[in-house]
Computed example of a mutant assay.
Amino acid sequence: MKKDEIKEESNEIERKKGEVWKYFFERPKKNYNKYMYEMVEYPEYLIYDNEEVKKNKGKWNEFFGNNNGIYLEIGCGSGNFTVGNAEKFKDRNYIALELRFKRLVLGARKSEKRNLKNILFIRKRGETILDFIGKDEISGIYINFPDPWEGEERKRIITKELFEKLDIILKNGGKLYFKTDHQKYYEDVLELVSELDGYEMCYRTDDLHNTEKAAENIKTEFEQMFLSKHNMNIKYVEIIKK
């Protein structure tokens, strides 16, 4: 890249940094999270503009430039799990959802460092997936260690309403993969699936790290920390859409 092109690109990044607050706040503030500005530096790996996200609905394979299966992670943290998957399975595309600026930037950094071409981080809530994911676009969805919302279970991400959304975006034969350290959440998901039409529990264990799947399991940041500090089994299920 020529010097004038580098300068022009640098100027464009600085311009975007000056305007990025407008995507998240109604009026300017004195101080901002520094990672909010850094999101602008990873246009190949991170989208924070809601309109840009929505315009790709039903066209995500075009975005990735291939017809490979698309896998979605809701609540990706700083990206260890999805980055690990994207690095391991180059014939799949990965979209990771997260809200916190720092976590999004860390995930994008890891992806850029590994020169991954099959991964994208999006600043969106899992509840909004129908806004930007089209019919039958997703081959698999990962939900790892979501908040169990003890006493406020109606706020959980895995509910009957989630499966109603999966009816639309998940391909037949696609799977929901769920990991948790919370026994009651695990049991409640098992019960929920048993009551659903169109879905079937195809794998379940209340001790993932003592199964045949342990070797292929990619740990999340929370999982690594949890296993190093606590002696509690990780629960894991795979739910297939029939």
Results as ranks from 00 to 15, higher is better:
Val193Phe: 05
His230Asn: 14
Phe63Glu: 05
Asp197Asn: 14
Lys3Thr: 12
Asp188Ser: 14
Glu223Tyr: 03
Lys57Glu: 12
Ile168Phe: 13
Lys22Met: 08
Lys235Thr: 01
Phe24Arg: 03
Ile122Gly: 05
Leu72Trp: 10
Gly140Met: 05
Lys229Glu: 04
Gly18Asp: 06
Glu87Ser: 14
Arg154Asn: 11
Leu166Phe: 07
Ser139Pro: 00
Tyr186Ser: 03
Leu176Gln: 03
Ala86His: 06
Glu8Val: 11
Lys17Asp: 06
Lys17Pro: 07
Gln224Asn: 14
Asn93Leu: 09
Arg204Cys: 08
Pro28His: 09
Val193Pro: 01
Glu195Ala: 07
Lys213Ala: 06
Val237Phe: 08
Pro28Phe: 10
Glu62Asn: 10
Ile234Pro: 00
Glu26Cys: 10
Asp91Tyr: 09
Tyr48Ile: 13
Ser228Lys: 13
Asn61Gln: 08
Val105Asn: 07
Ile74Asn: 08
Asn144Lys: 04
Ile218Val: 11
Leu196Tyr: 07
Trp149Ala: 00
Glu12Asp: 10
Met1Thr: 09
Cys76Phe: 14
Ile13His: 11
Asn80Gly: 04
Glu52Tyr: 11
Ala108Gln: 07
Tyr177Glu: 12
His182Gln: 02
Phe81Ser: 10
Met201Phe: 06
Asp91Pro: 04
Ile239Arg: 05
Glu14Ala: 14
Gly18Tyr: 05
Lys171Gln: 08
Gly18Leu: 05
Val189Met: 15
Ser78Trp: 15
